[in-house]
C-alpha cells in the first residue's frame, strides 16, 4: 500500500494540479510553476550524490581489483579531484579567512589561491573549463564533421524508392548550400526553398501532431496509473 498506492496518488494529484495550473493566470499559480521548477532543480542537485557515488564506485572497483587499464581510472580520479579542489578551495579558504578579516592580517601562505568564487572569470575552475574541458568539447563536437561523411557514404544508397528520395533530397540540399549547385543549374536553390517549404513543412507538422497525441496519451497513462514502470510494476493488476 505505502509502496505503491501513495506514489500513484502523488502522481495523480500533481498531474491534475498542473493541468489546471496552465489555465490559471493568478499570481499563486505562476509562483507554483516557478517554485516547482526550482524544486526539481534542487532535487536534481541533491541526487547528483547518487550519480557521483556510482561513478566513484565504478572506478574504485577498477583500481582495487587492478583490472587492466586501472591506471586510467586513477587519472579520472585525479581530474575529478582537481576540478573539485579548484571549485571548493577558494570558498573554504574564504570561509576561514573572512571571520578573521576584521583587523586581522591576511594569511600569507594562502595567497597563491585566487580567492575568486567559482563560475566567475579569473577563477581557477574557470581556467580549467576553458583549457581542460572546452578543447575536449569542441573536438568531440567537431568529430561529427567526419562521421557525417562516413554515414552519408554508407547510408545514401539507392536501394529502394524511399532510400532514393532520401538520397536525392540530401544531395540537392548539399548542392544548394554551396556554389557548386548553381554552377550545375540555376534552379537548384529554388528547388531547395521548395523542399523546405513544402514537403519538409508537411512532414514536420504531421510528426508534431503525432508527438502531441503521443504526449497526451502517455501523460494520461501516467496520471491515471496505467503506466507504472517507474514503480517497478510492469503488470496491470
Amino acid at each position: 500500500m505505502i509502496k505503491r498506492q501513495i506514489p500513484l496518488m502523488i502522481a495523480f494529484v500533481m498531474g491534475i494540479l498542473f493541468i489546471i495550473q496552465f489555465f490559471v493566470p493568478h499570481q499563486l499559480s505562476q509562483d507554483l510553476l516557478t517554485g516547482v521548477n526550482k524544486w526539481l532543480m534542487i532535487i536534481g542537485g541533491i541526487s547528483l550524490l547518487l550519480g557521483i557515488n556510482s561513478l566513484v564506485h565504478f572506478h574504485y572497483v577498477q583500481i582495487k581489483r587492478e583490472t587492466p587499464g586501472w591506471g586510467f581510472s586513477l587519472v579520472m580520479f585525479l581530474c575529478f579531484g582537481l576540478a573539485l579542489v579548484a571549485g571548493f578551495l577558494p570558498s573554504i579558504v574564504m570561509w576561514f579567512v573572512e571571520p578573521a578579516k576584521a583587523g586581522a592580517e591576511p594569511v600569507k601562505w594562502l595567497s597563491f589561491i585566487p580567492l575568486i568564487p567559482p563560475f566567475e572569470p579569473g577563477s581557477t575552475l574557470f581556467w580549467i573549463f576553458r583549457n581542460g574541458i572546452s578543447p575536449f568539447m569542441a573536438t568531440m563536437f567537431s568529430m561529427i564533421g567526419f562521421f557525417i561523411a562516413s554515414a552519408a557514404f554508407r547510408a545514401f544508397r539507392a536501394r529502394s524508392l524511399e532510400a532514393t528520395l532520401l538520397l536525392i533530397a540530401a544531395v540537392i540540399i548539399m548542392l544548394g548550400q554551396t556554389p557548386i549547385g548553381q554552377m550545375l543549374w540555376q534552379g537548384i536553390p529554388d528547388i531547395m526553398v521548395w523542399i523546405f517549404s513544402v514537403p519538409n513543412t508537411a512532414a514536420k507538422r504531421a510528426i508534431w501532431f503525432g508527438i502531441t497525441m503521443g504526449t497526451i496519451a502517455f501523460s494520461l497513462r501516467i496520471i491515471f496509473g496505467i503506466e507504472r514502470a517507474y514503480l517497478g510494476g510492469t503488470d496491470q493488476k
Binding site: A149, F153, F156, A158, L167, M174, T178
Partner: peptide, 12 residues
C-alpha cells in the same frame, strides 16, 4: 560538400 557528394556517388 563536394567530397561528400562524390563519396555518395562512388558508394552508389
Amino acid at each position: 560538400h563536394a567530397l561528400i557528394i562524390v563519396l555518395i556517388i562512388i558508394g552508389n
